[in-house]
Simulated scan of single mutants.
Amino acid sequence: MNFRLHLFELEDQAWFPHIIRQGMLDFLRFMISKLGAYETAVPLLQELLTKTKQQHFTDLCSGAGGGIEVISQALNKQMGVPVQVTLSDLYPNEAAYLYLKERSGGLIDFISEPVDATAVPASVQGTRTIFSSFHHFRPEQAQAILQDAADKRVGIGVFEGASKSWLELIILWLVFPFLILLVTPFIRPFKLSRLFFTYLVPLIPIGIIWDGTVSLLRIYTPAMLQQMANKVHAPNYTWRAGKVGDKPGKHVIYLIGYPTTEPQPLS
């Protein structure tokens, strides 16, 4: 797909029931972690942290923290030092964040107050990441997110766990309805509400299929991301967009950006 349609996602709507939104995000977190969907993004994130001389990053639009636990473990192993992660979201999923914090021994923490990625407060410092969420923003909002990072001279990594293909759309429609029913009992932390809204009143599966379809149509291609980055006004800032991964379920579209050393004045 070399086009983009910005249809509406249920998850984005302020009126959408929080309990259904969190059920959808919990499923997404479970699948991303089990599939290792962001495995190929780890070297890119390591590069970003190395370039920005950071051992900590703040994840914006974290949802239910999908994939962060696996990413954190891989980074700790590859970098040889503990990497601290702070989760944040406009609608924080505190139950999921507490679960991840406990499992990580505190290496994964979170901001309990809402954080708007289009207006990141000054208290949020250092390298930023956005996993599986950049497509939620219209081009002018996405551009502003990149510009804000560049203005504050912080690194930013945008990662989407998909290759934006018709095959992914077909799998979503034909396979995921059965997959949701199969894996829901194994999602932790356990919630009776998740079972109710999956099996008795199937609002969670309907929401997952609808938002998954819209997400694929919304995702920016690498060319779109690079074009957006080229419009950012910031001296001595490096951008790179692309696609990595050659196995099903492990494709990642990415954009990374970080400040470079400013040139010294001529003597």
Rank of each mutant, 00 (worst) to 15 (best):
N2A: 14
L7Q: 08
E9V: 06
L10A: 12
D12F: 11
Q13P: 08
F16I: 04
I20Q: 01
R21G: 05
R29M: 11
F30W: 11
M31C: 12
S33G: 09
Y38H: 09
E39G: 07
A41F: 08
V42E: 01
Q46C: 13
T50V: 15
T50E: 13
Q55V: 15
H56R: 08
C61V: 05
S62K: 10
I68M: 04
I71Q: 08
L75A: 03
L75C: 03
N76L: 15
K77P: 05
G80H: 10
V83N: 00
A95E: 13
A96F: 12
G105R: 13
L107E: 07
T118Y: 08
T127L: 06
R128F: 06
T129N: 01
F134S: 05
F134G: 02
H136W: 06
F137Q: 01
Q141S: 12
Q141W: 10
A149F: 03
K152D: 06
E160L: 10
A162Y: 04
A162I: 13
E168Y: 03
F176P: 04
L182N: 11
V183T: 09
P185H: 03
I187W: 01
R188T: 15
R194Q: 05
R194V: 11
T198I: 04
L200P: 06
I204K: 01
I206K: 12
I206F: 10
G207N: 05
I209E: 02
T213N: 09
T213V: 07
L216E: 02
L217C: 10
Y220S: 07
Q226D: 08
Q226I: 08
Q227R: 15
A234M: 12
Y237K: 05
A241V: 03
Y254P: 02
L255I: 04
G257Q: 01
Y258C: 10
P259E: 10
E262G: 14
P263D: 12
P265H: 10
